[in-house]
Simulated scan of single mutants.
Amino acid sequence: MFVPLRWLRERPRHLLVCERSHVRHERSRHAVRVRDHAFNCRVSFLIPDCGIPPEALKSAVADVGEYYLVKNLSLHELVTQEFINTFVKKGSCYALTYNTRIDQDNSAALLPTGKLLISVDKDTYEELGLQGRPSLYSGKKPMRYIITVDLTDSAFNPDSKKHKRVIWALREKKPLEFDFLLAWHHKGSEESTLMSYFSKNQIQAHQPKITFSTLRNVQCPILEYNKLQGEPESACSAQEFFEWLGAILNQVDLDNISSNFLSTYSCPQPGTVIEQTLLCTVTGFIVPEKIIHLLEQICCYFEEPKLAHWISLIVHGFADSPVSWRESEHGFLKGGENLYSFVIFRSLDYWLQMAVGAYDDCP
């Protein structure tokens, strides 16, 4: 991919959007924010002054649930009336193309709202003949387009011209085939499952990978829930804490000792040393409903007295997902940033920090 020289000289822009509220506040939007971020590949939580995983959190992590990888799935199979009636209209269905690069390859994503977003290059767009819009990252001469199909639209029925045209375009005019990650969240007992529905395809069930580890003698900033923006100056700012959290997750040395490295990093001040800190990481295709349940269990953790003053929950989205929050187009460009984190305090006040990369829309 060609990268203009000025982009190499410019400092990459990134956006960190911060909110502060209380989990039990009637206007709290924490659950809405989680639901808005549909495609998640990794969830971690960090508990200071804790060495043994709490049983409730272990159960919540174990209940994240399986997901599926379907090989060589024709895109038109996701717009059939049978699929829509069986999965899209009876729960939250998630589908994301696997091993596709959003800046180079065709890709697609099915949101739980029933919106199917298809990101295609110019040639594919012209061959399909479906209505779309230029990608936000195409520049003055669009080389990529986004097509949106609302599968729940009342006008999108088997007898409509729109439905027939979409089926014809995806099945006959320009067939598109991808490997898909799939997950379905629903209430009640349904006879149909993704495994049985796609039994004629190459489908594999996967369980998320779960790891627990205990970090020793962690240098940790002192947080105060009402000082998110770092005022007064002595408080740890949102940006400083977000960087510290990234350093912990990536096992960066916080000693700030001169060595043969070009740069060093030290813990924001004021800080303290935590003797033991529990870190749990779940990797897979994780739906927002399971993250909301985990967040609720974290809140329940503080119902009894604990040494920990706060717990952090960190969620990473796919760098190559065609969408980030809601239906906002996601662009890789320089870093593909697509993540958010909660800090839940004993009082159940929380910080929410949402990070997006260069030119992405504000969450």
Rank of each mutant, 00 (worst) to 15 (best):
F2Y: 12
P4K: 07
W7E: 08
E10F: 14
R11T: 14
L15C: 11
E19C: 15
H25K: 15
R29N: 11
H30K: 13
V32C: 14
R33G: 13
C41H: 05
R42D: 07
V43G: 01
L46N: 04
P48Q: 02
D49V: 09
D49R: 04
D49Y: 04
G51S: 15
P53M: 08
D63C: 14
V64T: 08
E66H: 10
E66N: 13
Y67R: 01
L69E: 09
L73S: 02
L75P: 01
T80Q: 13
Q81R: 12
E82G: 11
F83S: 08
K90C: 06
S92D: 12
Y98V: 09
Y98A: 04
N99R: 14
I102A: 00
D103Q: 10
Q104Y: 09
S107A: 10
A109R: 03
L110F: 03
T113Y: 07
S119W: 06
Y125M: 03
Y125D: 01
E126W: 13
G132N: 04
P134M: 09
Y137W: 15
G139I: 13
P142D: 08
R144I: 09
A155L: 10
K161L: 13
K162H: 12
I167E: 09
L176E: 06
L182V: 04
L182E: 00
S189H: 13
M195R: 10
S196R: 11
F198L: 06
Q204L: 09
Q204K: 14
A205T: 09
Q207H: 15
Q207M: 12
I210T: 07
I210V: 07
T211K: 11
T211M: 11
F212I: 15
F212V: 14
S213Y: 08
S213Q: 14
L215P: 01
I222N: 06
Y225E: 10
Q229A: 13
G230A: 05
E231L: 08
S237Y: 00
S237A: 06
E240A: 03
F241K: 00
L245D: 02
V252P: 06
D253E: 07
D253S: 09
S259H: 11
S259W: 04
N260V: 11
S263C: 15
E275D: 08
E275Y: 03
I286K: 01
V287S: 04
P288S: 05
E289D: 14
K290T: 09
Y301R: 12
V315N: 03
V315Y: 01
G317V: 02
R326E: 11
H330F: 04
F332W: 08
K334T: 10
E337A: 13
F342K: 00
S347K: 03
D349Y: 10
Y350Q: 05
Y350L: 08
M354W: 03
M354H: 02
A355H: 05
A355D: 05
Y359L: 12
D361Y: 11
